[in-house]
Nucleic acid binder design. Structure first.
Length: 283
DNA sequence: CTCCTGACCTGAGTGC
DNA sequence: TGCACTCAGGTCAGGA
C-alpha cells in the first residue's frame, strides 16, 4: 500500500491517541512479518508511555523509554484505530491497547502480504540502523515532521541527478536518493513535470529538474491533504478511504486518454514495476 | 560502485 | 465452478 502520503496519514492519526498514552497491553499474534518481530516487543510496549510518534520516509517511529519502535507497512499494511476492542480480522498481527486521560484506544496492525516489519532499537543506535542510515532527504516537511533540516532542495536534487545512469523512474524510487516516494507518486510527479520515465536521470537538469522538484512536492502535499490514495488495501485508520485516487492523472490509467492531450496513457515495465505515462506530454 | 532481476507473500481479477 | 495465471502503494540479496 503505502507511500509517504499514506504513511503520513496513518502517523497523523496515531499522534493524538498515542502521544503521552500508556500502553495497557500488547498482543503479538505471530512471530514474524517480513523479518522476525523483536522478541522484547511485548515487554517493551506493556506498561510504557509513548513519548512521540513521528515518520521518516515510509517508516513510522514510535518512541518510549529511550527506544524507537520502527513500523514499516510494506505493500499491504494498514492500521485501524478504534475506541473499543475490535473484532479480529484475518491478518491482524499486532493489537495494542492504550490509555490517555482516561480514554482508551485500540490500535491494530493488519498486513496480508507481510512485507512490512517492526524493529526496535535503542535511541543511540537509531541513526545507524540500516533502514535509516542510507535514506536520502525527505521530499517535504509537514508541520516540522520530519525536522526541516533534511528536506530536499534543488541543489541536492541537481547534485544527485548528476552521473546517475538509471532511468529517472528508478532514480526516484531509490530511497537513498529521496526518501518516501513509491510507484504511484513517481509516475504522477513525472507526468506533472513533463518528464519521460525512460529518460536517464543524469539528463534531467536545468528546466526539467526545476519542474521536477515542485512536481514531487505538490503531488505529495495534495495527496496528504486527501488522505492518500486508496487502490486496494489502504484505508485511513478511521476506516475512510484515501481520496487522492480521484486525482491520479496517469497511474492505473493505461489506455485512457491523457487529460492534457487525449493521447492514450501507456504502461511499460521498468525494473519490474509498471510505469504509466503520456508519450506526448512527457519527454 | 551502480543497476537490474528475482524473491518474499496473499488476495483479487481475468481468461479459458 | 474451477483452475492457471498475472498483478499489486516495497524492499533486499545477489549477480552482471
Amino acid at each position: 500500500m503505502p507511500e509517504l502520503p499514506e504513511v503520513e496519514t496513518v502517523k497523523a492519526a496515531l499522534v493524538p491517541v498515542m502521544t503521552g498514552a500508556k500502553v495497557r497491553y500488547a498482543e503479538i499474534r505471530r512471530p514474524d512479518l517480513r523479518f522476525p518481530l523483536p522478541t522484547n516487543l511485548k515487554s517493551f510496549l506493556e506498561g510504557g508511555t509513548i513519548t512521540s510518534v513521528k515518520r521518516r520516509a515510509k517508516i513510522i517511529l514510535i518512541r518510549a523509554a529511550n527506544h524507537v519502535m520502527m513500523l514499516h507497512l510494506g505493500m499491504s499494511g494498514s492500521v485501524r484505530i478504534s475506541d473499543h476492542k475490535p473484532n479480529s480480522q484475518p491478518h491482524d498481527h499486532v493489537e495494542i491497547a492504550v490509555e490517555k486521560q482516561g480514554q482508551s484506544h485500540w490500535i491494530v496492525l493488519n498486513d496480508p502480504r507481510r512485507f512490512g516489519y517492526i524493529d526496535l532499537v535503542h535511541e543511540r543506535d537509531f541513526n545507524n540502523h540500516k533502514s535509516i542510515a542510507a535514506l536520502g532527504p525527505e521530499p517535504v516537511s509537514i508541520a516540522d515532521d520530519p525536522e526541516p533540516d533534511n528536506v530536499l532542495d534543488i541543489a541536492y536534487l541537481n547534485k544527485a541527478l548528476e552521473g546517475a545512469k538509471a532511468p529517472i523512474k528508478s532514480f526516484l524510487l531509490d530511497q537513498r536518493q529521496i526518501a518516501g516516494l513509491g510507484n504511484i507518486y513517481v509516475c504522477e510527479a513525472l507526468h506533472r513535470a513533463g518528464i519521460s520515465p525512460k529518460r536517464k536521470a543524469y539528463s534531467v537538469k536545468g528546466k526539467r529538474a526545476a519542474r521536477l522538484l515542485p512536481a514531487i512536492q505538490d503531488v505529495l502535499h495534495e495527496a496528504i491533504g486527501q488522505g492518500g490514495t486508496s487502490l486496494r488495501d489502504h484505508k485511513q485508520p478511521d476506516g475512510k478511504l484515501g481520496y487522492f485516487v480521484q486525482s491520479l492523472k496517469v497511474y492505473g490509467r493505461e489506455g485512457e486518454p491523457c487529460l492534457a492531450c487525449d493521447t492514450p496513457i501507456i504502461s511499460i515495465k521498468q525494473s519490474g514495476r509498471a510505469s504509466f505515462y503520456c508519450s506526448i506530454c512527457q519527454r
